[in-house]
Design a protein around this nucleic acid. Structure first.
Lengths: 200, 200
DNA sequence: CACATATTTCAAAAAGTTTTGAAACTTCCG
DNA sequence: CGGAAGTTTCAAAACTTTTTGAAATATGTG
């Protein structure tokens, strides 16, 4: 496989800055990171993003890229890319650890904040694009509703109506995301819980 | 107003014209089906599922597999597979057309019903798996919380707490999906609209 | 029944995505 | 400055998913 060598270098004896001592994941960590990886993959991210985040989330201390490489058996390149992607999503932060020159990483632990950020950036953009496209389609349909050909007219009218439905659905989705994000800035969980009780 | 040929947009720039009169997509159809395809792909389905569904949704009459093949420039195999997949998701139905022996297809036009069905079958399963995995991880952690080694104990406690947070989030998600599905059976749109007004 | 046409299936090809590993780069330290 | 350790980059390889096209199958009709 791959020649891993690290044993010798930790002679430094910095008292409290640790490389993890148990390099292997506990079963609970393995299970959770695997499951989060799948959930998140399903949701459109890379599995490794979920796994790396989970390991960090369950770790008491920040971890180095090397720690993660070992824990998850990834290449250094994969770790680096995954971390920087997670960083771009704002779900993992670099932590400066005194007395050690390598970078350490820790996970955002405010779950709700994290989720709302992702919704806001990723989902919202997609929904907004759709809204725009639907609006344009409606505009392009407008002249056809006055066509001399009654078949064309009928078709244009039907399409206009249906695209309008899609547009409304998309707007509803956008509002939902907006609401989520806005309220997440406060403290969403109780609120959502409250909302879910109402349906009656 | 000119019909748009999907294939013409793809790289080659060679618009291989085929279709008979009336089979081409209008620009509004092309744009909408493209956008729905992307939205849905983003959401984990195949792009063609979104495109086929959209074309059906915007068509006044049911279409045959052949019609779709032409409109979207797909192979017959692709159309067949896409349609049967859409059928399995219950978003497209076969329609019997008198005096024609080929099958015709039409799209589910109750958007909300459609969406809630998909949520129910696909998302819920995934969330439920996650809940199960988290619960199991908590159980496996239990004995470690009584470990003689204080480091192990501390670590186990931290993990226990964090996995509990994940579990609660997952349960919240599940409840949200449940609520969506339940209320969608009635008439969800107004309800959701109502819910979204509250947060203030 | 034989025919023509419609539909499904499926192995192989194409397209797309993720991971790797080695080289280039950066930073810190003596 | 020179070197050691850590990090990033990126082209190529491995892997995954999607699409194709042709053969197999099914179905209604004369």
């Amino acid at each position: 496989m791959d020649p891993v060598d690290f044993a010798a270098r930790d002679a430094s004896g910095k008292p409290e800055r640790v490389s993890r001592e148990g390099k292997e994941l506990w079963p609970s960590e393995a299970a959770v990171s695997d499951r989060v990886g799948r959930l998140i993959e399903f949701w459109g991210f890379k599995r490794n993003m979920g796994r790396v985040w989970s390991v960090l989330y369950l770790s008491p201390d920040p971890l180095s890229a090397e720690d993660l490489r070992e824990a998850l058996q990834l290449s250094s390149g994969a770790v680096s890319m995954t971390l920087s992607e997670l960083g771009r999503w704002g779900v993992v932060r670099k932590v400066w650890v005194q007395g050690d020159r390598r970078d350490y990483f820790s996970a955002e632990i405010q779950l709700w904040k994290m989720i709302s950020r992702v919704f806001n950036e990723r989902e919202k953009a997609e929904v907004e694009n759709a809204i725009e496209a639907f609006e344009e389609a409606l505009v392009s349909l407008e002249p056809l509703k006055a066509s001399p050909d009654p078949k064309v007219r009928a078709r244009a009218e039907l399409q206009f109506e249906r695209i309008t439905n899609l547009l409304e659905l998309a707007r509803l989705g956008k509002r939902l995301l907006d609401a989520l994000v806005t309220t997440a800035k406060i403290d969403a969980e109780p609120l959502v819980r409250f909302l879910l009780q109402r349906p009656k």
